[in-house]
Amino acid sequence: MTDVLREVGMIARALDSISNIEFRQLNLTKGQYLYLARICENPGIIQEQLGELIMVDRSTVIRAVKRLETTGFIIKKADLTNKKIKHLHPTQTGLEAYQTVIRENNYSTCVALHDFTNQEQEQLERLLTRVRKNVAIDWEFVKKGNHRQY
């Protein structure tokens, strides 16, 4: 068995750490840039969908959304038919911060894939997508209160 997930984890932690440091100037903390990016890319998304998209639990999404709303990056708008449902939308401040997030993402992607051919980049994306889909099955299973058999 290879240490592929260990490598993926190290890459993810390094990039997350870099982003958290660089986005402090925007008043984004602890991974909030990820939530903001998904809200900007999916205006009107609801918290449940956001959690599924990022693959985090409900309480984590609630805390992140509350902080983004408090700091003026997003607003919640009530659904027209069901007032309990709140749609998340970026503010102008959120959209401006998102532009910085995207520039950082593009830069990090170029650094990470330096010296990879286009074919290798496409292959890596296909393989990682397969890995994510495999993991998503277990994530859904465990999220529902089940336990995996090791």
Rank of each mutant, 00 (worst) to 15 (best):
V101Y: 03
T91Q: 03
D16K: 11
G145L: 03
M55Q: 15
H114G: 04
E7C: 12
L113I: 04
E125M: 08
I102T: 01
L26P: 05
I11K: 14
N146F: 12
Q25L: 06
Q25F: 05
T71H: 05
A14W: 09
K143A: 06
W139I: 14
G51V: 05
R63H: 11
R126M: 08
Q99K: 13
A97M: 00
T71M: 02
E48R: 13
T100G: 03
G31T: 02
M10H: 10
M55A: 11
K30E: 11
E96I: 12
Q47M: 06
I54A: 01
T109K: 13
T93L: 09
T117S: 15
L127D: 15
T93Y: 09
M1E: 11
K86P: 05
L15Y: 12
Q92L: 09
K30M: 06
G72C: 07
D138T: 14
Y35A: 02
V135I: 15
V101R: 01
I46Y: 13
R6M: 08
D3Q: 11
E120G: 02
D57Y: 14
D3A: 14
F73N: 00
R132S: 14
Q92N: 15
G31E: 03
S108W: 12
F73G: 00
D115E: 09
E122S: 13
H89T: 00
V4L: 15
Q25P: 03
I85Y: 08
I137S: 03
E96Y: 07
K143F: 10
